[in-house]
Structure formats: structure tokens, C-alpha cells
Nucleic acid binder design. Sequence first.
DNA 1: CCTTGTTGTTATCGACTGATAACTTACTCC
DNA 2: GGAGTAAGTTATCAGTCGATAACAACAAGG
Lengths: 181, 181
Amino acid sequence: MTKTRLTAAERSEEVLQAAVVAFGANGYAGTKTDEIARLAGVSQPYVIRLFGTKQQLFLAATHRVCDRIEETFRQAGAREGSLASLGESYNELIPERELLVVLLHGFAASNDPVIGEAVRERFGRIHRVVGELTGATPEEVTRFMATGMLLTVMAAMQVTGPNPVSCSWATELLSSLSTKD
Amino acid sequence: MTKTRLTAAERSEEVLQAAVVAFGANGYAGTKTDEIARLAGVSQPYVIRLFGTKQQLFLAATHRVCDRIEETFRQAGAREGSLASLGESYNELIPERELLVVLLHGFAASNDPVIGEAVRERFGRIHRVVGELTGATPEEVTRFMATGMLLTVMAAMQVTGPNPVSCSWATELLSSLSTKD
DNA sequence: CCTTGTTGTTATCGACTGATAACTTACTCC
DNA sequence: GGAGTAAGTTATCAGTCGATAACAACAAGG
């Protein structure tokens, strides 16, 4: 019965983490604020009060995810500024399936002007950061991003990450990636 | 006032095309059957009666899209069995933004077991078909699929296709693709 | 022309869902 | 210790949305 009371900032952080999980599973339109509330252990109206709007909460989740991706890349880049190094660090992110898939749901929700603009901006930023960290050619960076999108889509299809659905083409595809990723 | 009456099969075809457009714009959860009905020029209950369920309609739209992609690849492969040839044919698909984006929405909706299974099956099939048509190595095929996913995501973000949102990173990225796609 | 099957509509339900308002409970600082 | 503020809840609304049912209109064949 730990009815601990948190500051709004702390509670917002918990709600945000819950939102990443929920949105990652069911996307923007498919996720109900009530579900996020249950995950976070608070009431649904409180979720709304903390973030104002479902849309704003989704934007916050998107930004959180992109921040973490950039952070991961920066750390990998600090160790070794190669595409291979960043690629490996991306693999570390895959186990947290929701994380990557939230981003995919952001892309998918780009028809909403507000979400679309945010998502384009963040994707462009990741693209730029990868280039800056590695000094790779535009072609190499593009190819890196393409591989990232493939992995993200596969995460969404649940053939990678925890409890993966076994799939002949998926294992084949993954092995052909590791040969020169 | 052309109150033409069609057979159920013909009307279903029109509804299905409308569904591809609508689902492509707003995804599975984000699209209302009523919207599809308006696009097709029929009443919302009739849409349901023709396809039974919103989910079944989405599945039909997904299969339709995948059929068209495979068809396009087969035709290109018949002309010339190279990855470059298939890649060019994919570019022809991009102007019909909805088409590719429906597939992305399918990936995103993979949390639904029925949709997930269908989408995994179709993606695997495309992967296999590309391999068969081109005789390329697994690594090359995987890279082809990765590029395809990148293009699909970019289509969703509306930086390619009709009325593209202008975006510095997008033009840069696209030009680096055309150098050796 | 009238019966029968098929196409299509209107009316309506019932469950959901984001958001608001009003109220309550805990913490904190004199 | 109580006044004030911040955290959190319950109650509830207003609008949606997919689906069902019942009815209507059109076509074809005998």
C-alpha cells in the first residue's frame, strides 16, 4: 500500500515511460489514455492533466525516444566514430521493442500535421548526427538509415526483440545483416 | 445523378480502393469506416456488410497492396532480372503514396495477432520473390529491402510522392540513393 | 405485372473515449 | 496545528464509431 506521493515532474516521468510502452504497442490512434494511466498506476484524467492532450503526450513520447536514440549514438560515437560502432549500439536498443516502434508509429501518424512536422525534424536530426559522428559519406549514412528502418520495421512485426515470432525469412535476413553491418 | 447500381463484387472493388486511400492516410485504428464509405460514395453500414468487419477490410487492403507490389516486381523482373530494375519499378509505385504507406500501417498494426500474421507472411513473400526474380545474394536482397523500407517511411513522412514537404535532409538523402540504387 | 433475390439506405444501438469539473487527500511551511 | 498549495481521484459528459436490423428500391424472369 505504498501510496507514495510524487511531484508532478516525477509522476510525469512515470507516465511518459508508460506512454512509450503503450504507444509502442498500439500506436497513436490505437492507444487509449486510460491504458497508459493503468500502466502508470494513476487515473486517466490525471494523465490528461499532466500532458494536456493525448497528442502532446504522444509528441513527448516521440521526443523521448529520439533523445534516447541520439544519446545512444553519441555514446557509441565517442567510443569509436564508425558506422559499425553505431550499428552495434542500435542493436542494444532493439530489446526495448517499444522504443523503436514508437518512432515507426510516429512516421505512420505523419498525416497529422503537428506529429508529421515533429517526426520529420527528429528523423532529419538523427540523419545529421549520424553523419557528424562518423564522418561517413552521404551514401554510407543513407544506407545506415535504411538498415535502421528495416530493423525498426522488423521490430514492429515482432520478429526481433523479446519473445520473437519465429519466421524463416527473418532469421535469414538477420544473418545476412550481421555479415557486414 | 448517375445512380448506377453495381454488383456486390464491383462495389467491393470500389470500396477496397477507397479503403487503400483512407487507410494509407490514417492507418488502421485512425481510419473510420464512415470515411471509407464517403470516399467510395456509399453508406457506412454497406461497407461493413460488404467486408464483414473493419479488420477484414484492412486485411483486404493490405493484400491488395502487396499483390500490386509483387506484380510490379514480377513485371520488372520479366524485363530484366536485376535489383536495379526492381528498384526502378519501385520508384514508379511511390507516386501512389497510399499504396506503400498502407503496408507501413500494416507493420505498425502487427500487435493485432491477425494483422501481424498476415503482414509477416506478405513481407516474407516479397522478400522471397525479390530473391527469386533477381538471383541476388541474401546480402543484396536484404539491402534492397532495407532501401525499400527507407523509401516507404519517407513516403509516410510525405517527403516523397505528390506534394512533398520540402526538407533539406530528404533531398540530400534521395540524391545519395540515386547514385547507386 | 408480380414475385424474388440482390443492392443499397435509414435508423439506431451500445460501447467506448478524451476531456472537464468538482471534490478530496496529502504535504509543507510558518 | 492549521492554512495554503500541490497531487490525485471520482463523476460525468459529449461526441464517436463499428455494427445490427429493418426497410426500400431496383432488376430479371416467368
